[in-house]
Simulated scan of single mutants.
Amino acid sequence: MGDRMYLLDWNTLATLDDESLPLLQAALLIARDEYPDLDPAPYEALVQAHAEDVRAEVEATGPRPLKMAAVNRHLFFELGYAGNQEAFYDPRNNYLNQVLERRLGNPISLALVQMEVARRLGIPLDGVSFPGHFLVRLPVEGGLLVMDPFNGGRPVAVEELRERARPHLGGEIPDDHTLLQILSPAPPRAILARMLRNLHASYAESGQWDRAARSADRMLKLLPNQPQALRDRGLAYLHLDYLPGAREDLARYLQLAPLAPDADEIRERLIEASHGRAVLH
């Protein structure tokens, strides 16, 4: 089977519900935008090999936390997967082919590798869209084991989770109910959208507006009419002097989010686009 047949196209992907959405394939599809000759088969085989290398140990181990510890030891210590501390915002940290080749990534891409290996071993590991850094969670007897893939998969204690969440909750320490809500499993679409948001932010910061627009466009394939993605694509179009697209996206953003904190600023940008000129600061 040729690789073009192996990877779903974006339009097909957009029609799938979360339960049917293949996370690894979809992440490689994101990478193909930047690496058009990407053959997904070797990367699928590599993830499978990671699982097979540790399968005997996992199957011989009893409780889930110990099974997961074996997976983490293999990935983060024996194979050397690590968080890219020196270049956190490098776009390659979000492209799964690069993560698997370089064994360097950011929290969400490392979590994706961790989840895919664990699931091949029958370990029900889920991602968590935690504020700040993406985490993973494993149901265990008596509760949840929460781990940090950016730091070698180490367990994160409840009090540390509360402190990590606190700055994103107006300084309030979350109670048990709020914390459990934050720790809900992230659906595949949310994981892919977060990777695309990371890419958009990296490319916008470096002024690569064609790639920034592409990242926002892909997000809209997964989440049609997502206000922030419409805004981000519209502003990227403005930088690229594609004014019809900018007008359509920014007008739709204001329609969907009229009370957004940046609504006045976006209205100014829309006026500029409607007058046929892009004045950007």
Score class of each variant (00 low, 15 high):
N225W: 09
L199V: 06
G207Q: 06
L28P: 04
V158C: 14
L220W: 01
L180K: 08
P42G: 04
L222I: 00
L75A: 10
P167D: 11
R55P: 04
S129W: 07
A27I: 01
H168Y: 12
A260N: 12
A111W: 01
M5E: 15
N97F: 01
L38V: 02
L24D: 07
A157R: 04
Q98C: 14
N11Q: 13
A31C: 03
P40R: 12
G105I: 03
L238V: 05
A26C: 08
S274F: 05
L16P: 02
G143C: 10
Y237V: 06
R119Y: 03
R218W: 13
I123F: 00
D9L: 06
A60M: 08
R55T: 03
R218V: 06
G62H: 07
P65C: 08
H200D: 12
E101H: 13
Y242K: 14
L104V: 10
D262S: 14
D33H: 12
L21H: 00
P149G: 04
V113M: 13
P188F: 01
D53Y: 00
V47P: 05
I266W: 09
L138D: 10
Y237P: 09
K67T: 04
A212I: 06
V140N: 04
A273I: 02
D17V: 00
T61D: 02
S274Q: 15
L38C: 05
E59P: 02
A278P: 11
A27C: 06
L179N: 02
V136F: 07
L256C: 01
E101T: 10
R233G: 08
E205V: 07
A186C: 06
I173Q: 15
A257M: 10
S184H: 05
T61C: 02
L169V: 05
R197D: 14
F88Y: 15
D90Y: 05
A31G: 11
G127Y: 08
L270C: 12
L250T: 03
P124D: 05
Y89V: 03
A193R: 10
R267Q: 14
L169Y: 07
L29F: 03
R214A: 14
L220T: 02
L161V: 05
A49L: 12
D176N: 11
R102S: 10
H177E: 15
M219I: 07
P131C: 13
H133K: 12
R162E: 11
L110V: 05
V117W: 01
L138K: 07
N198G: 11
A190R: 14
R252C: 11
A260E: 12
Q114I: 04
R64S: 15
Q208F: 15
L125W: 06
D18M: 00
Q181H: 13
P124E: 05
L238P: 09
A87M: 03
N198R: 08
R102A: 13
V71Q: 04
L138I: 03
A229D: 06
L46M: 09
N97C: 03
V47Y: 04
E116M: 14
P139M: 10
L223D: 12
M147K: 07
A213L: 06
R267M: 15
E19M: 08
I191T: 12
N94W: 13
W10K: 06
